[in-house]
Simulated assay, not measured.
Amino acid sequence: MKEVLIATNNLGKAKDFDTLFKPFGVRVLTLNDLDEPIDVEETGVTFEDNAILKAETVARLLNKIVIADDSGLEIDALDGAPGVYSARYAGPEKNDGDNIDKVLKELAAVPTEGRTARFRCVLAVAGPGIQTETFSGSCEGLIHTERKGTNGFGYDPIFYVPEQGRMMAELSPEEKSLISHRGAALAQLKVQLPQFMESVGDHK
């Protein structure tokens, strides 16, 4: 069976990719399926840098087609921060609550119209026989002054989606998938899937 490895330990992300590849008869693997752990240090300064770094490093080590993503929050009033540091904005322990507290504190004096932001996701596809390509998606919104909602993770409780009239954390998983930054990037990747499938080898 043909295999594609997703460079993530996040089972939620894996399900999104499994849905995408299933019609092609492709088995989706993640870093959790490897005998030896692979940890790629994200040293890039952009989402593109980190996605490419992860995809190419793992693809080279395993000689497989690999898809990696990097994503986060960009706030205009903070010159694009937290950006690539979204998960560890308040410290290396990657605490969602602390990250939100830091953002709210830094935006305390910023009026509603100046709190524009977006979630961004970049997917990179790398492997033997193909040229590395990237696909990106975004979701525009505003940073609210307080938390609302219990769904999602990360900055979802303070990310207001104008078209929905609700926070990202107030949306169901199905509603979120239709408008999310990762969903948009996956939609771009889907268009290119047939050509990638020609490069994916069969594995016993």
Rank of each mutant, 00 (worst) to 15 (best):
M1V: 09
K2Q: 12
N9G: 13
N10S: 12
K13I: 09
T19H: 10
P23H: 09
F24V: 00
G25K: 05
G25V: 00
V26I: 13
V26Q: 09
D33L: 04
L34P: 14
P37T: 03
E41W: 11
T43L: 14
G44M: 12
G44C: 12
V45C: 12
V45K: 14
T46D: 11
F47E: 02
E48W: 07
I52C: 06
E56F: 07
E56P: 04
L62A: 01
N63I: 04
V66L: 13
I67A: 01
I67C: 03
S71G: 06
G72W: 06
G72V: 00
A77S: 02
L78R: 01
P82G: 09
P82N: 11
S86T: 10
R88P: 09
G91Q: 14
P92S: 12
E93F: 02
N95W: 12
D96L: 00
G97I: 11
I100D: 05
D101M: 07
D101I: 02
K105D: 02
K105W: 03
A109L: 14
A109C: 10
A109R: 15
E113Q: 15
E113V: 13
T116A: 01
A117C: 05
A117N: 01
F119I: 01
R120D: 03
C121F: 07
V122E: 05
A126F: 09
P128I: 07
P128M: 05
G129A: 12
G137Y: 14
S138M: 00
C139I: 05
C139R: 04
R147A: 00
R147P: 02
G152V: 04
G152M: 04
D156Y: 02
I158R: 02
P162H: 09
E163D: 14
G165D: 00
G165W: 00
R166A: 10
M167C: 08
E170V: 01
E170M: 05
E174H: 08
S177E: 02
S177H: 05
I179Q: 03
G183P: 03
Q188S: 06
Q192T: 11
Q192F: 12
P194H: 08
M197D: 08
M197C: 07
V200R: 03
G201F: 07
K204Y: 11
